[in-house]
Design a protein around this nucleic acid. Structure first.
Length: 198
DNA sequence: TCATTAAAGTTAT
DNA sequence: ATAACTTTAATGA
């Protein structure tokens, strides 16, 4: 899952605080740190020429990010923004790599986290590509609900705006809104004062 | 079927 | 107040 906070501090890790909307790192920059979310949500995204946002991932507390790029000598391919106010543990690349050297167990955990992310990425790719708006939205909602303990219908409140859902699926907001409405008519989700329950 | 544009209503800061 | 989000409608690829 995530590396113990104590361990990160013991190798010189620092706590960074970000406000909602703050940039943590940006596309093209040099990867120098391992990041792990203590509190809040972080999004990884790209912007296309015309300014349209593509959200690659929305990360909950406990997840790490930026780690995959530490093993490469390449610039960041994405931006990281604080979605909410958040606290992030940050460890310098060299310290982080040294840590993996000393603690094989931790190295394995990082591998597992990495594996899980690529696995989900592959799934997402396949499910999002070349399908109708309704299908795309159904698929991401399935993936969002999957780790949830309560599997009952309408038990899961989608914790994202329609804008975000659109950016996650590569749709424009209006299309996402209409698709969500159609899904409500087909009784696959419920809307209560603008909140989506799936 | 979906993107785009425009316009207006609603909610959050 | 102002910005961000949501919704509806018209138009065109």
């Amino acid at each position: 899952m995530s590396i113990k906070t104590k361990l990160l501090h013991s190798v010189g890790g620092t706590e960074e605080h970000y406000h909602a909307g703050d940039c943590i790192f940006s596309e093209g920059g040099t990867p120098l740190f391992y990041y792990q979310i203590a509190e809040g949500n972080v999004k990884l995204n790209n912007y296309s020429e015309d300014g349209k946002e593509l959200i690659q991932n929305i990360l909950p507390p406990g997840s790490c990010f930026g780690e995959s790029m530490l093993f490469l000598k390449k610039p960041y391919p994405i931006n990281a923004f604080a979605l909410t106010d958040c606290t992030v543990l940050k460890v310098h690349r060299d310290k982080f790599l040294a840590l993996l050297d000393v603690y094989p167990h931790t190295a394995l955990e990082i591998c597992e986290a990495l594996s899980e992310k690529t696995y989900n990425k592959y799934l997402m790719m396949r499910k999002i590509s070349s399908k109708s708006a309704v299908e795309r939205l159904t698929e991401i909602m399935n993936m969002m609900k999957e780790p949830q303990p309560n599997k009952d219908k309408f038990s899961f409140e989608i914790p994202h705006t329609r804008q975000q859902l659109a950016s996650l699926t590569g749709l424009c907001v209006e299309t996402a809104i209409r698709a969500i409405k159609r899904m409500e008519e087909k009784n696959v989700l419920k809307i209560r004062n603008r909140k989506i329950f799936y």
